[in-house]
């Protein structure tokens, strides 16, 4: 697998799903508790979806799959995802 990108790369898709800017949101890993901006997630762009993993423990945190215009969102790996103040 190629080197992962980061959460910045899915800023558009996250905005589409949540209706607001999410790269500065604070993500908490449900596995190891690592806390940081969603922009720092290890992101793999895999057709037809994207996968976001914890940069510390590699746990699967976010899966977004879009098929025929419908996006399925799986956030079960996250303990929390809190939108941050813009530009914080």
């Amino acid at each position: 697998m190629s080197a992962p990108l980061d959460g910045n790369a899915i800023g558009g898709q996250l905005n589409e799903v949540f209706g607001t800017e999410m790269t500065a949101a604070t993500a908490v890993c449900g596995n190891c508790g690592a806390t940081g901006p969603a922009a720092e997630l290890a992101v793999y762009l895999l057709s037809p979806g994207v996968v976001g993993r914890c940069r510390q423990c590699a746990a699967l945190l976010i899966v977004l799959v879009t098929v025929r215009g419908i996006t399925c969102v799986d956030l079960r790996g996250l303990a929390a995802l809190e939108p941050g103040p813009a530009g914080s």
Binding site: G11, G12, N15, M22, T23, A24, P37, A38, A39, G87
Partner: peptide, 15 residues
């Protein structure tokens, strides 16, 4: 196109 996107990798003077 669509945007602007991102609120983390940004710089304003206030930062």
């Amino acid at each position: 196109l669509r945007g602007p996107i991102g609120g983390y990798f940004v710089w304003d003077e206030s930062l």
